[in-house]
Structures are given as structure tokens and as C-alpha cells.
Amino acid sequence: MSRAAIRYAKAILQKANEDNTEAVLFGDMQSVYKTIEDSRELQSVLQSPVIKANDKKEALLKIFSEQSNTTHSLIRILVANKRTSLLGNVAKSYIDLYNDDQGVKVATVITAVPLTSELEDKVMAKVKELTGSQKVTLTNEVDPAIIGGFILRSGDIQYNASIANQLGNLKREFSKSI
């Protein structure tokens, strides 16, 4: 994350705290972040030096017309400061700052196949044990390259229980003994 994106995120979090709308803005920022992450075209538009700032502003305000006035103000400020390319990072930074303020630990679990609800419950229990927090948000990424098992990341904690990791460890052990 760029320092500029974090500064913008802190500023809108402060504004949202003053207006008592931090939860509303959290929903907005999740929507903004997901929309930008899911659209290569939108990412290209935001990065493009060829597209006029006013056109970017109009497009963003249309795309995010359902969002709050604070989100619209953020878009206008980023456009005015020629920083529209930061919008996705500002949204992600806000999400992280909000979760920190709320004491929510965010964990990512990487599995070879999508999590079942039963497995998700087990992973949540492991995250709560590792982080010592009862407020946990879990995201699942699928990566068939890990073969099986899972990799769990939360903050600076990583717990690797993947088969690919175990096979790598075996390979290193065999190569040492030969």
C-alpha cells in the first residue's frame, strides 16, 4: 500500500468517525475495492493518463452512484489531486484501518478447493487460537498448486499445512541425505 493511499484512508476514516458513519463507509469501501479488483477495464481507466480527469470522475460517480456522499467526496478529491489510480488502494487501506479499529483480525486461507462450511468452521477455530481474537473475518483463495491442506495467513502469522509444503520438506530431507 502506498503511503498516500493510507493517508487518504485515514482522513476519510476520521471524517466518518466524526459523522458516525464509519460502518456505512466500510460497506462502501468494500464495494469499491471489489468492483475495482473485479474489473480490468476499470483498473485501466483509472491508470490511464489519456482519459481526462473529468471523464474519470463522471464514470466513477455513475459506477458508485449508490454509495454515500463521503465516498463521492473521496472520488472528487482524488480526481482533483490527479490520484484516481489510488482509489482501489484507498478503499483497501480503509478496510484494513476499520478492521484494526474494531479489533477484527482478517485471515486468508488458501486451499486447493473451495472451503466447505464444516472446514471453514475448523479454520475459524484455528485462526481464533492463533490470533487470540474472537472477531475474525475469513477470506478464501483457491490455489490448486498447493495440492491439498491449507495455508493460513493473518497479519504476520503464517501457518502452512499444505501438501505441497510437506512434499517440499521431504524433498529437502532426501537431498540432504544423498
Rank of each mutant, 00 (worst) to 15 (best):
R3M: 14
I6P: 01
I6H: 06
R7H: 09
Y8T: 02
A11F: 01
L13R: 03
Q14R: 13
K15Y: 14
K15N: 09
K15P: 01
N17M: 12
E18Q: 13
N20F: 13
T21Y: 00
E22R: 09
E22M: 11
A23T: 11
A23G: 05
L25P: 01
F26N: 05
G27D: 14
M29S: 04
M29A: 06
S31P: 00
Y33E: 12
I36C: 02
I36G: 02
D38W: 07
S39A: 07
R40F: 13
L42D: 05
L42W: 05
Q43S: 12
Q43G: 11
S44K: 12
V45P: 02
Q47D: 11
S48W: 09
P49K: 08
V50M: 10
A59E: 08
L61T: 07
I63H: 02
I63Y: 05
Q67S: 14
T71W: 02
T71C: 09
T71P: 02
S73Q: 12
R76L: 03
R76F: 10
V79K: 01
V79G: 00
V79R: 00
N81M: 08
K82V: 10
T84M: 02
L87N: 00
L87D: 01
G88P: 04
A91F: 02
K92N: 03
K92G: 05
Y94H: 04
D96G: 04
L97M: 08
Y98A: 02
N99R: 11
N99L: 04
N99I: 03
D100C: 03
Q102F: 06
Q102G: 05
G103K: 08
V104K: 04
V106M: 10
A107F: 03
A107K: 02
A107G: 11
V109Y: 02
T111C: 06
T111P: 00
L115Y: 11
L115P: 06
T116F: 09
T116A: 09
E118K: 14
E118Q: 15
E118V: 14
E120R: 14
K122L: 12
V123P: 00
V123Y: 04
K126A: 12
K126M: 13
V127M: 07
V127N: 03
K128D: 06
L130T: 06
T131C: 11
T131F: 03
S133A: 15
Q134H: 14
K135E: 11
T137R: 13
L138K: 03
T139E: 13
T139V: 13
N140D: 12
E141V: 08
E141H: 12
V142E: 10
D143F: 08
D143V: 08
I147Y: 11
L152G: 02
R153W: 01
G155H: 09
D156G: 09
Y159E: 13
N160Y: 04
A161R: 12
A161I: 09
Q166V: 06
Q166D: 09
L167D: 10
G168T: 10
G168P: 01
N169P: 03
N169S: 13
L170H: 06
K171R: 15
F174W: 11
F174L: 15
F174A: 09
K176L: 14
K176W: 11
S177H: 15
